[in-house]
Computed example of a mutant assay.
Amino acid sequence: MTFNANTILTATVFAFTMTSVYGAAFRRTCYTAGTVGNECAQFVNNFCSRLEGNVAFRNNLARCYNTPNFKCDFGAFYEFPLTSGSTSPATPAKGSCVDTLTNVTNTCGGFGGFGNTAGGAFTFTLDPNQGQCGQLEAPGN
């Protein structure tokens, strides 16, 4: 393949477009066992749109949603300082939340997972579990 200015320009534009569509690079880890909860995807926007107020460093906001057969646990954990050495409270970015959790729902086979966007202070989690919200997880066999 011969590279010329048009090929490089096309590749650069394509890379920029993909970054714009998906927001930013992701740090994402999928869970590999447990309850499969593909239905949890329907709650991503609701969870992320309800992230309000400041969260203290190393604390989290969490919410649980019921499906007929299991629950979907969501969280936003303030893991990384916004600026070096700063541990001031912060508010999770809704766009980063949606981008990260959509990535998790699209790539983790329904098991859930966690991650954040590049440079993001918050780690977002999605974890389908047995039982219903407000109850302990159902015991395993």
Rank of each mutant, 00 (worst) to 15 (best):
N60G: 12
N103D: 07
V104E: 00
F74N: 03
G131Q: 10
F26Y: 14
P68E: 03
Q130N: 04
V98S: 08
G75M: 13
V104M: 07
F43G: 13
T105N: 05
G131H: 11
R28T: 15
Q130E: 02
C108Y: 06
C108S: 03
G95C: 00
T107D: 00
V98C: 03
R28M: 14
S20E: 09
N141R: 15
D73C: 07
F111P: 01
G115M: 07
L61H: 03
S20Y: 11
P128Y: 03
G120V: 04
T125S: 05
A15K: 13
S84N: 14
N129K: 14
L126S: 00
C97K: 06
T117K: 01
T102G: 00
T107E: 01
V44S: 05
G34W: 11
Y22G: 13
R63Y: 11
A121M: 10
S96D: 09
G112C: 09
A90W: 03
T7N: 03
T10G: 05
T105G: 05
L101W: 06
A138Q: 09
F124M: 04
T17Q: 11
C30P: 12
D99W: 15
L136S: 08
A90L: 04
A138W: 06
G113H: 03
S49L: 07
A15P: 12
N60C: 10
N45H: 14
F70Q: 04
A76E: 06
D99T: 14
R27S: 13
S86Q: 13
A76C: 00
G109Y: 05
T107V: 03
F70V: 06
R58K: 06
C64D: 06
N54G: 10
S86W: 09
G53P: 00
S49W: 07
F111M: 02
S84V: 14
R50T: 15
L136E: 04
G75F: 13
D127A: 13
F124G: 02
A121W: 07
V55S: 01
T67E: 00
E52A: 14
T117I: 05
F3W: 10
G113Y: 00
E39R: 12
T91W: 08
T83E: 11
D127G: 13
C72H: 04
P81R: 11
F124A: 08
P89T: 08
F43P: 13
G113V: 02
T7L: 05
L51T: 04
A11E: 01
R27V: 10
T100F: 12
N6S: 01
F57V: 04
N69Y: 09
R63P: 05
G120M: 02
G95R: 04
R50C: 10
A93C: 11
N69F: 08
A5L: 08
G75E: 14
A62K: 09
